[in-house]
Protein backbone atom coordinates (compact mmCIF):
# COMPACT_ATOMS: atom_id res chain seq x y z
CA UNK A 1 0.00 0.00 0.00
CA UNK A 2 1.34 3.42 -0.98
CA UNK A 3 1.32 6.21 1.51
CA UNK A 4 0.04 9.49 0.06
CA UNK A 5 1.25 12.76 1.53
CA UNK A 6 -1.65 14.86 2.82
CA UNK A 7 -1.12 17.51 0.11
CA UNK A 8 -1.81 15.00 -2.68
CA UNK A 9 -5.52 14.68 -1.72
CA UNK A 10 -8.09 16.87 -3.47
CA UNK A 11 -9.67 19.77 -1.46
CA UNK A 12 -12.89 17.85 -0.68
CA UNK A 13 -11.00 14.69 0.29
CA UNK A 14 -8.65 16.79 2.38
CA UNK A 15 -11.55 18.40 4.21
CA UNK A 16 -13.09 14.97 4.80
CA UNK A 17 -9.75 13.69 6.07
CA UNK A 18 -9.45 16.60 8.52
CA UNK A 19 -12.95 15.90 9.86
CA UNK A 20 -12.16 12.18 10.11
CA UNK A 21 -8.89 12.84 11.96
CA UNK A 22 -10.64 15.17 14.40
CA UNK A 23 -13.39 12.59 14.99
CA UNK A 24 -10.92 9.78 15.50
CA UNK A 25 -8.89 11.94 17.87
CA UNK A 26 -12.03 12.77 19.84
CA UNK A 27 -13.52 9.27 19.95
CA UNK A 28 -11.75 8.11 23.14
CA UNK A 29 -12.76 11.38 24.80
CA UNK A 30 -16.38 10.87 23.76
CA UNK A 31 -16.49 7.28 25.03
CA UNK A 32 -14.82 8.39 28.25
CA UNK A 33 -17.27 11.25 28.56
CA UNK A 34 -20.29 8.97 28.30
CA UNK A 35 -18.95 6.58 30.95
CA UNK A 36 -18.33 9.67 33.10
CA UNK A 37 -21.91 10.74 32.42
CA UNK A 38 -23.14 7.28 33.39
CA UNK A 39 -21.16 7.64 36.60
CA UNK A 40 -22.80 10.99 37.34
CA UNK A 41 -26.19 9.31 37.00
CA UNK A 42 -25.07 6.43 39.23
CA UNK A 43 -24.10 8.95 41.93
CA UNK A 44 -27.46 10.62 41.38
CA UNK A 45 -29.17 7.29 42.10
CA UNK A 46 -27.01 6.93 45.22
CA UNK A 47 -27.91 10.34 46.63
CA UNK A 48 -31.09 9.27 48.51
CA UNK A 49 -29.10 6.52 50.23
CA UNK A 50 -26.32 8.92 51.12
CA UNK A 51 -29.00 11.02 52.81
CA UNK A 52 -30.05 7.90 54.72
CA UNK A 53 -26.55 7.59 56.17
CA UNK A 54 -24.88 5.33 53.61
CA UNK A 55 -21.25 6.13 52.83
CA UNK A 56 -20.91 6.05 49.06
CA UNK A 57 -17.57 4.80 47.72
CA UNK A 58 -15.71 7.06 45.33
CA UNK A 59 -14.41 3.96 43.56
CA UNK A 60 -16.73 2.84 40.80
CA UNK A 61 -16.96 0.30 38.04
CA UNK A 62 -17.96 1.11 34.49
CA UNK A 63 -17.65 0.36 30.83
CA UNK A 64 -19.99 -0.43 27.99
CA UNK A 65 -22.09 -3.50 27.28
CA UNK A 66 -24.22 -4.79 24.43
CA UNK A 67 -27.92 -5.47 24.96
CA UNK A 68 -28.42 -8.60 27.13
CA UNK A 69 -24.68 -8.79 27.83
CA UNK A 70 -23.87 -9.35 31.49
CA UNK A 71 -20.90 -8.49 33.63
CA UNK A 72 -20.02 -9.80 37.09
CA UNK A 73 -18.48 -7.30 39.47
CA UNK A 74 -16.84 -8.94 42.48
CA UNK A 75 -16.89 -7.32 45.92
CA UNK A 76 -15.74 -8.18 49.40
CA UNK A 77 -18.73 -7.54 51.65
CA UNK A 78 -18.92 -7.79 55.43
CA UNK A 79 -21.65 -9.30 57.58
CA UNK A 80 -23.07 -6.55 59.78
CA UNK A 81 -23.07 -3.88 57.06
CA UNK A 82 -25.88 -3.01 54.67
CA UNK A 83 -24.98 -2.26 51.06
CA UNK A 84 -26.77 -0.54 48.19
CA UNK A 85 -25.44 -1.08 44.66
CA UNK A 86 -26.61 1.59 42.21
CA UNK A 87 -26.23 1.34 38.46
CA UNK A 88 -26.99 3.88 35.74
CA UNK A 89 -26.43 4.82 32.14
CA UNK A 90 -26.65 8.13 30.32
CA UNK A 91 -28.62 6.54 27.44
CA UNK A 92 -32.07 7.89 28.14
CA UNK A 93 -34.25 5.10 26.76
CA UNK A 94 -32.06 2.24 27.96
CA UNK A 95 -33.10 -0.07 30.79
CA UNK A 96 -30.70 -2.02 32.92
CA UNK A 97 -30.53 -4.19 35.99
CA UNK A 98 -28.26 -5.05 38.89
CA UNK A 99 -28.65 -8.01 41.26
CA UNK A 100 -26.36 -9.45 43.92
CA UNK A 101 -25.29 -13.10 44.18
CA UNK A 102 -23.11 -14.88 46.72
CA UNK A 103 -20.09 -16.95 45.76
CA UNK A 104 -22.31 -20.02 45.31
CA UNK A 105 -24.40 -18.17 42.75
CA UNK A 106 -27.44 -17.66 45.00
CA UNK A 107 -29.48 -14.48 44.62
CA UNK A 108 -29.11 -12.49 47.85
CA UNK A 109 -30.92 -9.21 47.06
CA UNK A 110 -32.72 -7.97 50.15
CA UNK A 111 -34.58 -5.65 47.78
CA UNK A 112 -34.07 -4.27 44.32
CA UNK A 113 -35.60 -1.76 41.95
CA UNK A 114 -35.30 -0.82 38.34
CA UNK A 115 -36.48 2.36 36.69
CA UNK A 116 -35.35 3.03 33.16
CA UNK A 117 -31.74 4.01 33.11
CA UNK A 118 -31.38 3.49 36.88
CA UNK A 119 -31.30 0.28 38.90
CA UNK A 120 -30.42 -0.62 42.47
CA UNK A 121 -30.06 -3.63 44.72
CA UNK A 122 -29.59 -3.86 48.48
CA UNK A 123 -27.86 -6.66 50.30
CA UNK A 124 -27.37 -7.42 54.02
CA UNK A 125 -24.79 -10.21 53.88
CA UNK A 126 -25.56 -13.19 56.11
CA UNK A 127 -21.87 -14.02 56.05
CA UNK A 128 -18.70 -12.12 55.21
CA UNK A 129 -17.18 -13.04 51.85
CA UNK A 130 -17.07 -12.44 48.13
CA UNK A 131 -20.24 -11.34 46.37
CA UNK A 132 -21.02 -10.60 42.75
CA UNK A 133 -23.08 -7.74 41.38
CA UNK A 134 -24.43 -8.96 38.04
CA UNK A 135 -25.06 -5.98 35.79
CA UNK A 136 -26.99 -6.18 32.55
CA UNK A 137 -28.33 -3.92 29.83
CA UNK A 138 -31.93 -5.05 29.28
CA UNK A 139 -32.82 -2.68 26.48
CA UNK A 140 -31.02 0.06 24.60
CA UNK A 141 -31.12 1.86 21.26
CA UNK A 142 -27.30 1.73 21.20
CA UNK A 143 -25.11 -1.22 20.21
CA UNK A 144 -22.89 -0.54 23.20
CA UNK A 145 -24.36 1.16 26.24
CA UNK A 146 -22.09 2.94 28.74
CA UNK A 147 -22.82 2.00 32.35
CA UNK A 148 -21.47 2.74 35.80
CA UNK A 149 -21.94 1.10 39.17
CA UNK A 150 -21.30 2.53 42.62
CA UNK A 151 -22.04 1.23 46.07
CA UNK A 152 -22.70 2.59 49.49
CA UNK A 153 -22.56 0.94 52.89
CA UNK A 154 -23.63 1.58 56.47
Amino acid sequence: MNFLPFSQFGPLTRRFAVVAIVLVAWTPCLVHATVDDALSFAYEAALPYYKQGYSVRKDAWGGDLGVRDKKAVSSQLFKGNNYWFLMATDVKSATLSVHIYDDNGNLVDAESWQRGRFAGARVSPKATGTFFAIVQILKSPEDRTPWALVYGYK
Binding site: K71, A72, S74, T95, Y101, G105, S112, Q114, T130, F132
Partner: peptide
Amino acid sequence: IARADTPPKKIALSDFPAAAVEEVV
Protein backbone atom coordinates in the same frame (compact mmCIF):
# COMPACT_ATOMS: atom_id res chain seq x y z
CA ILE B 1 -40.68 -0.10 38.01
CA ALA B 2 -43.33 -2.78 37.53
CA ARG B 3 -41.47 -4.08 34.51
CA ALA B 4 -38.51 -4.81 36.77
CA ASP B 5 -36.75 -7.93 35.64
CA THR B 6 -37.13 -11.13 37.58
CA PRO B 7 -33.61 -12.33 38.22
CA PRO B 8 -32.84 -16.05 38.45
CA LYS B 9 -32.60 -17.34 42.01
CA LYS B 10 -29.38 -19.11 41.15
CA ILE B 11 -26.72 -18.60 38.51
CA ALA B 12 -23.60 -20.49 37.50
CA LEU B 13 -20.74 -18.10 38.08
CA SER B 14 -18.51 -20.45 36.10
CA ASP B 15 -20.49 -19.43 33.00
CA PHE B 16 -18.90 -16.00 33.17
CA PRO B 17 -15.69 -15.84 31.12
CA ALA B 18 -12.79 -14.13 32.87
CA ALA B 19 -13.24 -11.05 30.69
CA ALA B 20 -16.79 -10.65 32.02
CA VAL B 21 -15.70 -10.57 35.66
CA GLU B 22 -14.42 -7.34 37.15
CA GLU B 23 -11.64 -7.56 39.75
CA VAL B 24 -12.62 -7.16 43.37
CA VAL B 25 -12.42 -3.63 44.73
